[in-house]
């Protein structure tokens, strides 16, 4: 059931695409093998047949389901089908909280399921009659206070992270009371969602930072540098993104940054992105970090795909920005910008 392969096959229209480096998963799924759900169905059937004679078989059904989920969760985490790669310190903090909650809830889940299954396996009480017990104050008190304590702990432990992400503390990524004057950002851009793409507009680094970035977000300047579906920054940059939309609600989702923010029609939402890690390898190849839309925005909602490139340093980023600027101010057709491939080259494919 568990494969050792390091690639996962995905069938797309142009035939089967091999994704190199994809983590191994519970099973290798091929076109003809739809047997696993059938096998699980078979197990349920067997449990039912056995239960016709031994009613405790129902405990096995609950136990089997519990085991399936546990196996699934552990194997997912082990094989990398889990939280996406983390791209910032805040993302690490979010992951820490996630795993804390995961651990606490798992304990509770195993506890309750354990009690349930254990109860099912118990022999009938003596004489076939259970005691007529209506409750127990002490027990009620225990299982009121213990969860309350844990939940309050969860509520408190997350507050600093939330404040860092969205609160009033300096550098919060979505300051509730945004102060243009004290903006710590070193890169400013607007991201405008529309059906169905992201239009990026970078503030030109040659120009002084605008006095009021919120105003700049609504009034383009001639020096701005434009891009579609591509968010570029450099490692260590604090990126101020002004999120806008022209038509419906979109949600700007960067999985690697654990970042998600709706764009509201009629509003400019300032958000700060900490870019602590780069997705450019030492050899210059790029790990793909994608942008997705997380709020239904019409039929082609799924098409709002973009990519994030966090360059290794500011110079690399400026190279990209200057290239972008140069191609945007072309006064004559440059041969390099849009090469028409040579026929020989095309035929070799």
């Amino acid at each position: 059931m568990i494969t050792e392969g390091t690639s996962t096959k995905v069938s797309g229209l142009p035939g089967t695409v091999e994704i190199a480096g994809a983590p191994p998963y519970l099973f290798e799924w091929s076109e003809s093998a739809h047997w696993l759900p059938l096998a699980i169905t078979g197990l349920a059937l067997i449990a039912w047949i056995v239960s016709l004679r031994f009613k405790r078989a129902w405990a096995a059904l609950f136990g089997f389901t519990l085991a399936l989920m546990a196996l699934w969760t552990l194997q997912s985490a082990r094989s990398g089908l889990w939280l996406p790669e983390s791209a910032s310190l805040i993302a690490d903090e979010v992951d820490g909280l996630f795993h804390l909650v995961m651990a606490l809830t798992s304990i509770f889940y195993l506890l309750t399921q354990g009690v349930l299954i254990w109860t099912l396996l118990q022999p009938a009480p003596p004489g076939g009659r259970a005691a007529r017990v209506h409750g127990n104050h002490l027990l009620e008190l225990v299982w009121f206070t213990v969860p309350t304590g844990l939940l309050v702990y969860i509520a408190l432990v997350q507050l600093p992270t939330w404040a860092k992400m969205k609160g009033q503390v300096p550098g919060a990524y979505l300051a509730a009371g945004y102060q243009p004057a004290s903006d710590p950002a070193d890169l400013l851009l607007t991201v405008t969602g529309r059906q169905w793409e992201w239009r990026m507009r970078y503030h030109s680094p040659d120009q002084p930072m605008p006095v009021n970035p919120l105003f700049w977000a609504a009034t383009p300047a001639a020096e701005d540098i434009h891009a579609v579906n591509e968010l570029h920054a450099w490692q260590g940059a604090k990126v101020r993104m002004m999120l806008r939309t022209t038509d419906v609600i979109h949600s700007f989702f960067l999985p690697q940054f654990r970042f998600k923010q709706d764009m509201l029609p009629g509003k400019t939402i300032p958000a700060l992105l900490h870019t602590d890690r780069s997705n450019i390898e030492a050899d210059g190849t790029e790990r793909v970090w994608e942008i997705a839309c997380a709020e239904l925005c019409g039929g082609n909602h799924y098409r709002m795909r973009g990519k994030v490139v966090i360059h290794r340093d500011k110079k690399e980023f400026m190279d990209w920005l200057n290239r972008q600027k140069a191609s945007q101010s072309e006064r004559k057709e440059s041969a390099a910008a849009l090469p028409t491939p040579k026929p020989e080259a095309r035929e070799n494919q």
């Binding site: 059906q195 793409e197 579609v228």
Partner: peptide, 24 residues
């Protein structure tokens, strides 16, 4: 059109219309 013209539209989309960029 030159092939380059078609490729430009595919790469950049047509801003202001519903034709998106297919650069990715």
């Amino acid at each position: 059109p030159r092939r380059a013209d078609l490729l430009r539209t595919l790469h950049h989309g047509l801003e202001g219309t519903s034709m998106p960029s297919f650069a990715l």
